[in-house]
Simulated scan of single mutants.
Amino acid sequence: MPITVVTADITQLRVDTIVNAANPGLLGGGGVDGAIHRAAGPALLNACRALPESAPGVRCPTGEVRITPGFDLPVRYVIHTVGPIWQGGDHDEAELLSHCYRNSLRLLREHRLHTIAFPAISCGVYGYPATLAAAVAAATLCDEPTHDASIDITLCCFSDAMRAIFQGALNAV
């Protein structure tokens, strides 16, 4: 399962699916979530609105995943996941962040897809320290079964500085 770290606009990548670091309502927002919604077009928002709520205003609880078509994006699907809001590290943040990666890969396999790109989940407005988030991402992804060489993972960072952090974490595993 090769893992590559790149600096790029995730909405421009040509992979089977990209992961959206979404909010629980799945109705768009800032950062990567807003960029994905803008690039996918209004059909993505309509598809997200059609997903059932598990609680008022919550279509995807923290650590879980939902899937929609990619619409105007150059991908088949968008996997939406909600990362944890950083609260100092004593509120199961690492476990919840790990679930985001594991559950995304589970959906990838269930839909028989082979290429996936992840953003730096929770590293924006959710305030997760990048070095800690990168360590969780690298450890989780490297802990996945390696027998499936048909899956290619891209960690897509919005800046060279973030890319260096994620590459360093991957090298340390």
Score class of each variant (00 low, 15 high):
M1C: 06
M1L: 12
P2I: 14
I3Y: 05
V6N: 05
D9I: 12
L13D: 03
L13K: 08
R14Y: 04
V15K: 02
V15C: 02
V15F: 05
T17S: 13
I18G: 00
N23Q: 09
N23E: 07
P24S: 14
G25M: 04
G25S: 15
L27I: 08
L27F: 13
G31K: 09
D33M: 06
A35Q: 11
I36Q: 00
H37D: 02
A39W: 11
A39G: 06
P42I: 04
L44T: 01
A50T: 02
A50D: 01
L51V: 04
P52C: 02
E53K: 11
G57P: 08
V58L: 07
V58R: 06
R59Y: 05
P61A: 14
T62R: 05
T62C: 13
G63P: 09
V65I: 06
T68Y: 00
P69T: 11
D72L: 12
L73G: 00
V75P: 00
Y77R: 10
I79F: 12
H80K: 01
T81C: 03
V82F: 00
P84L: 03
I85Y: 02
Q87A: 15
G89E: 01
E93L: 09
A94Y: 07
E95F: 13
L96H: 14
L97V: 13
S98N: 10
S98K: 15
H99D: 15
Y101D: 10
S104V: 14
S104F: 14
R112K: 14
L113Y: 05
H114P: 00
I116Q: 06
A117H: 13
P119R: 07
C123K: 08
V125D: 08
Y126P: 03
G127H: 02
G127T: 03
Y128A: 02
Y128R: 01
A133N: 06
A133M: 07
V136A: 05
A138G: 01
L141H: 07
C142D: 11
E144A: 11
P145S: 07
D148P: 08
D148Q: 14
I151H: 04
D152F: 10
D152A: 14
D152G: 10
I153S: 05
I153A: 06
I153D: 07
D160L: 13
D160F: 08
M162C: 13
R163D: 06
R163E: 14
L170W: 11
N171K: 11
A172M: 07
V173C: 15
